[in-house]
Design a protein around this nucleic acid. Structure first.
Length: 416
RNA sequence: CGGGGCGUAGCAUAAUGGUAGUGUGCUUGAUUUGGGAUCAAGUGGCCCGGGUUCGAUUCCCGGCGCCCCGACCA
């Protein structure tokens, strides 16, 4: 990508209506823009990062047998009435609207009911189970108070997987598999070391659930960490501490954290309410056991910014960075510099290496500041000074380490 | 949903009952090019509706929007 053609520009100052680090930096860097409170647009840089997060999630979901689908946002009232969740005293953050003929519809805040309903067409025999559909899709929740940038919005992206199993045992086994897959996802996202499997309330679904909580001072939740086992307990169930074997009589350390994922054993509540059953080997009607597994990719993106940013800007882990290399041409009007930078850029393009090429004719300081703000992992500086001794330099955004590399060797060096 | 605050140019801010100034951005030119460089000339603004007033960006009422604290968060 050629930076002078990128329609987003960086900003020196943060907008006054944002306080959270993630929103300030993402807006200043041109990754996102605010549409209204709790609602954000993803711009080219932001979408690239979001897509990388989604790719990792997809790969891990596919690895445990997931099959991607894409469901509707508009939801039929009747399906939700069967489980009582249309009722505003049970679910108070619905966005509801009406068709022209007056029929009420909802904008999905989750998809247990419609998917269980849909599955009636695909599940009839024990041979059809288990199955694990998932989607990455927008959700709407009418939060009373949106806040913290991408961390808590009214419209947001969610990866939601649902499991449909023959028995409770089969469901629990898949649940464990999903739990491991989630661990891998956060590992790959670079959040592994600070993300804890956290015992939490099951909400209206079940007694308990598991959350994946990433430690950050700006998190909304408080968790109590048991460091030996690297697990935690959400404050909301702290009073249950002595009833849960893993936490009994253990020393727990409180920390602020943000919930980046949540998995539930749902039992048969939603399948039964939709009338979803299967016939076993003996032709006997049986209940379908369900689970659901959520991750908010946008919230993950915000969390990564919160956790890794430094005073100069964003620091993307390589796995989710919008580009791997930032080619910064100093004095871009200089012919030699421009030719050299373009050559490197084209070689990278040809090799399928993602780079952002800063070809703008701007002062060096401005270019460095922008580069720091955008947070691409490796910066390649092309300048008259470097060309003079036949080298280029690569700066690591995270560590600040600078490596001089002979320019002929640069592509090889990059590829390793 | 309770409490508090705010709305002036693309962004950030100042002053003012007599139509608004600064920084930054953007445009043009010149000089620059290893940490947001210098100079010059331009560009561009009072959230909406009503009231008070000779006159409202300013005061009052209403609306809309935004932020913070708390509650909520399936």
């Amino acid at each position: 990508m050629i930076q002078s053609r990128l329609f987003t520009k960086t900003r020196k100052e943060a907008p006054k209506d944002e306080v959270s680090k993630n929103a300030e930096l993402l807006i200043r860097g041109g990754f996102i823009s605010k549409e209204m409170a709790g609602v954000y647009n993803y711009l080219p840089l932001g979408l690239r990062t979001l897509n990388k997060i989604n790719k990792i999630i997809r790969e891990e979901m596919d690895a445990i047998g997931g099959q991607e689908i894409h469901m509707s946002v508009l939801q039929e009232k009747g399906i939700w009435q069967k489980s009582k969740r249309w009722d505003k005293t049970i679910v108070d953050n619905w966005f509801k609207s009406k068709l022209k003929n007056g029929t009420e519809v909802g904008l999905g805040f989750t998809h247990e009911e419609p998917l269980a309903n849909l599955m009636k067409n695909h599940i009839s025999s024990y041979r059809d189970l288990p199955i694990f559909p998932y989607q990455i899709q927008v959700k709407f929740r009418n939060e009373t108070r949106a806040k913290s940038g991408l961390m808590r919005g009214r419209e947001f992206l969610m990866k939601d997987m649902y499991s449909f199993c023959k028995t409770e045992d089969e469901q629990h086994k898949f649940y464990e598999k999903a739990k491991k897959a989630y661990g891998k996802i956060f590992q790959r996202l670079g959040l592994g070391d600070i993300t804890y499997l956290t015992f939490a309330s099951g909400g209206s679904f079940s007694k308990f659930s598991h959350e994946f909580q990433t430690i950050t001072p700006n998190g909304e939740d408080t968790i109590y960490i048991e460091e030996n086992k690297r697990i935690a307990l959400n404050k909301e169930i702290l009073k249950e501490k002595e009833n849960i074997e893993d936490f009994k009589e253990k020393k727990l350390v409180p920390q602020k954290a943000v919930e980046v994922g949540n998995i539930f054993n749902l039992g048969t509540k939603f399948s039964e309410s939709q009338g979803l059953y299967y016939l076993d080997e003996k032709g006997k009607k049986q209940k379908v056991w369900m689970g659901s597994y959520g991750i908010g990719p946008g919230r993950v993106m915000g969390t990564i910014v919160e956790v890794f940013a430094d005073k100069s800007g964003i620091v993307w882990p390589e796995a989710v960075a919008p580009f791997k290399f930032h080619i910064v041409a100093l004095d871009a009007a200089n012919k030699n510099v421009r030719m050299e930078a373009e050559e490197i850029y084209k070689k990278m393009l040809g090799s399928g290496i993602e780079s952002l090429y800063d070809d703008r004719e701007a002062p060096a300081g401005e270019k460095f500041a922008d580069s720091d703000l955008i947070g691409i992992p490796y910066r390649i500086v092309v300048s008259e000074k470097n060309l003079a001794d036949g080298t280029l330099e690569i700066k690591n955004r995270k560590t600040g380490e600078v490596k001089k590399v002979a320019k002929e060797k640069i592509l090889n060096s990059l590829l390793q």
